[in-house]
Write a protein that binds this DNA or RNA. Structure first.
Lengths: 137, 137
DNA sequence: CCGTATCCCCGGGGATACTG
DNA sequence: CAGTATCCCCGGGGATACGG
């Protein structure tokens, strides 16, 4: 396990295998990019850049290269004039879908639970300021 | 979906719910910390700091506070002399186990596939330098 | 159109010293 | 022991301009 020790070098003494994936997903903008490729299908650089609003070309390029290196994204270069570059998820990239969905499901449930807990408190006590939510355990 | 737009503010126009969780897990050292709490059980600040080797007190404190705020970690303060503070996973924190395991499983499979693919190439072609691995699709 | 090259700035995070 | 306070530094990432 890791994510940001001194140097993100290889060899982690008591490492955890999923670390690599988390490192990948954790990179800035990464989830945005994968999400857009998932929901809007293969698309060109500019299109992607427009959708992932706010990202710089530099950043987008860097992320796509990294994802490509990890074999999660495929890059198709067509040497027309002007050139046309299309990015798409690889088969491997698609394998993350299930976990992503699982994560999304949990997130939604938590959100609902928190909302319920909050409104419950409001009904019984109506505090001035919403207190930080606390886990039951 | 997101992870690092301009400001990690709330309100994301076309947001994705799992974003919150990813943001959390993606924080530096986070997975290390959760992993240690999972495998070594509840433990004190110093103990945790020793295990997550290389982390600074400042960072560890900040991460633990964030995790506590997200209700993934519980903080027990005992006002003895000297004070004794114990951290543990909450029930909610434990709900991530399944996804984590799933992720670990995928990571291990990929690693194996890559190793196989690499050695396969080495046998048939023996290239000087190992080429960047490429997805089938 | 799809990038790379350059510059520059801001804040995340480490080290150290100190308190309850 | 478990933090907080302070200082300081480095590099990640944006903006801009240019090349194929």
């Amino acid at each position: 396990m890791s994510t940001s020790p001194p140097a993100a070098k290889a060899k982690e003494s008591v490492s955890c295998p999923m670390d690599f994936i988390l490192r990948m997903l954790m990179g800035p903008w990464t989830t945005y990019i994968l999400y857009n490729l998932r929901t809007h299908g293969p698309q060109r650089f500019g299109e992607l850049k427009r959708r992932v609003s706010g990202i710089s070309a530099k950043m987008l390029t860097e992320r796509l290269r990294t994802l490509e290196g990890a074999a999660l994204v495929k890059r198709d270069y067509e040497a027309t004039i002007p050139p046309k570059v299309t990015y798409s998820l690889t088969k491997r990239g698609g394998e993350l879908d299930e976990v992503m969905d699982r994560l999304a499901e949990i997130a939604i449930r938590w959100e609902a639970e928190d909302a319920a807990k909050r409104s419950g408190r409001l009904i019984e006590k109506s505090p001035e300021k919403a207190p930080a939510l606390q886990a039951a355990e």
